[in-house]
Design a protein around this nucleic acid. Structure first.
Lengths: 186, 186
DNA sequence: TTGCATGAGTGCAAAGTTGCAATTGCGTAG
DNA sequence: CTACGCAATTGCAACTTTGCACTCATGCAA
């Protein structure tokens, strides 16, 4: 963060970062998938059956959309909330908005995991129970895309307008964006 | 395509491709943004006011979703329909499904263009006319994500199940996916 | 004919990324 | 004490991608 804020995103080279951190180039990539991921603090978190169960327990009344959004934000949550670095991170993101795209990629990375995660819930959902497996998979893809768009928009709004509310508010905001848009689309 | 089909996606190096094509490495990147884009035949197409007007003239009754989907498919249309290479391309995509993600990136690349393109239509749409500019931008982001997900799903379905129908069917299918999902989400 | 602007193509160097093989340190079974 | 396995780290080479500077052919104006 220091190097990036001091030298700019492009001029802070990996070699400089690694030397400053006292590790080798190769070790860096053992912990982060890319330079940008490291800046955002994104690590390879996994969506397990446990995490799904946890969310479902915490929000018993959640439907597919709510569950999906909370899982997604849960994935990028640690990278946003990690306290001290927060302000620097927001400063950098404001300077380089394209970093926000990384959140979408992070989610795309676990697209498959999310597909299987929401599949059983989708099969049981009121509006989707009658679908064939093929149709259900297509629906899952579309819903995932819808939710990730809302999540990205919510995070973007949160980082660009200063963070008045805690992270839960971003979750709720993203869910609201989905609901709102669906309703307006009739 | 020949090299990729013969050596595999990873073993067909840029150097080999460039030598086979009789151009330099650097020239390659003057025409394609990446190796994968070249395989899919994706070039830097632009969404102009003209192309928007054209679609609107062709489909006078189209709403925001329909317009957006047709614009998106229009962007990746040439890379799908270009005749001869079609079968090879589908074979490769079936072997490396992650290439489909490139379509989403291609659309993300012109996210801003699409935002401004659908903005006026969104402001006039029945369900969205009352929104503030900020809310409208958020809605646009969510709708773009929703449509790109449906477009990608439709293309995926089209390439994996053999291409019975022409490209227009993919557009219609993607629109149907959006409508269907929105309706089921209530 | 000369000079110049333009655009396409190229070479080169630097940076990010990844697979593979080798090394190191450490705890544990024999 | 030794040998072994395991995980973290590293070096190295190959590959993709990008910015910059250079050449060269073409065409056009003076």
């Amino acid at each position: 963060m220091t190097l990036v804020l001091h030298d700019g995103l492009e001029h802070a080279t990996l070699d400089a970062i690694c030397e400053s951190a006292g590790v080798s180039n190769r070790t860096f990539f053992n912990y982060f998938d890319s330079k940008e991921d490291a800046i955002l603090g994104l690590t390879d978190s996994e969506i397990t059956d446990d995490s799904v169960a946890e969310i479902m327990a915490a929000y018993p009344a959640a439907d597919v959309v709510e569950l999906t959004v909370r899982l997604m934000i849960g994935v990028i949550n640690p990278s946003i909330t990690s306290s001290k670095l927060l302000k620097s991170r927001m400063k950098i993101v404001k300077l380089h908005p394209h970093l926000l795209g990384r959140f979408a990629l992070q989610i795309q990375r676990m697209h498959d995991q999310l597909t299987t995660a929401i599949r059983p819930m989708l099969a049981a959902a009121p509006g989707f129970a009658d679908q064939s497996p093929e149709e259900s998979e297509l629906s899952a893809d579309v819903i995932l895309s819808l939710c990730s768009g809302a999540a990205r928009a919510a995070v973007k709004e949160w980082t660009t307008t200063g963070n008045k509310a805690p992270i839960e508010a971003v979750e709720d905001r993203a869910i609201e964006l989905v609901r709102n848009t669906v309703k307006r689309l009739k």
